[in-house]
Amino acid sequence: MEKDMELILLAKRGDREALTKLLVNRQAKLYKTALLYIHNKEDALDIVQETSLQAFLSIKHLHHLQYFDTWLIRILINVSRHLYRRETPVPEIVELTADCHKQVDLHQDLMQDLVMVPEKFRVVLILFYFNELQESEIAKILRVPTGTVKSRLNRGREWLREKGDVIREY
């Protein structure tokens, strides 16, 4: 983590190579999040690429270096939402890459139901269960109170339970 902080500081000062290293180290996590959000491999790759571009363009505006990952996921979610609004997603189930599959360990039924979860609940479920972020971190990313995150998490779980799936508790 200390090495990451050095890279983040260098990136903020304009070192493109440092930012590239940071993005490469987080590429699988970004791809996994985009894939779970959009459910389309090509769009997920586009989202990761656009997120990287936006990070390069706005790294100088990062005020708190310790929140680099939160800032980066926020960019990814904004890019995903933009794409999601622009195109009507086709609810399809995609096969995850081996790396993502190991990290996520999803059941196909759960992934299929996640496509149908309302967006404001889905994003919280993805960040909590698949990115293993705490409720307070999700609140910072989404810029909502922690109570709102808890509520959306509970409502998302209820929505899935009503559909017959149960998210296993971690």
Rank of each mutant, 00 (worst) to 15 (best):
M1N: 05
M1C: 12
M5S: 00
L7K: 00
I8E: 01
L10W: 01
D15Q: 01
R16T: 11
E17H: 04
K21V: 07
L22D: 02
R26N: 09
L30C: 08
L30G: 08
T33V: 13
N40T: 10
N40H: 07
K41L: 10
E42G: 11
E42P: 12
D43H: 12
A44M: 09
L45C: 12
D46G: 12
Q49V: 15
S52A: 14
S52D: 01
Q54W: 06
L57K: 08
H61W: 08
Q66I: 06
Y67L: 04
F68G: 10
F68V: 13
F68D: 01
R74Q: 13
L76G: 08
I77A: 04
V79E: 00
H82E: 02
Y84Q: 05
E87Q: 11
V90N: 03
V90I: 10
I93L: 05
I93T: 07
E95N: 02
A98K: 14
D99L: 14
D105W: 02
D109C: 09
L114M: 12
V117F: 05
F121P: 11
F121G: 08
L125H: 01
I126S: 03
F128K: 07
Y129L: 08
F130N: 15
N131H: 11
E132Q: 13
L133S: 12
I138T: 08
I138L: 04
I138C: 03
A139E: 00
I141S: 00
P145M: 05
T148I: 15
W159A: 08
K163R: 12
K163E: 03
D165E: 03
R168Y: 14
E169M: 13
E169Y: 13
E169P: 07
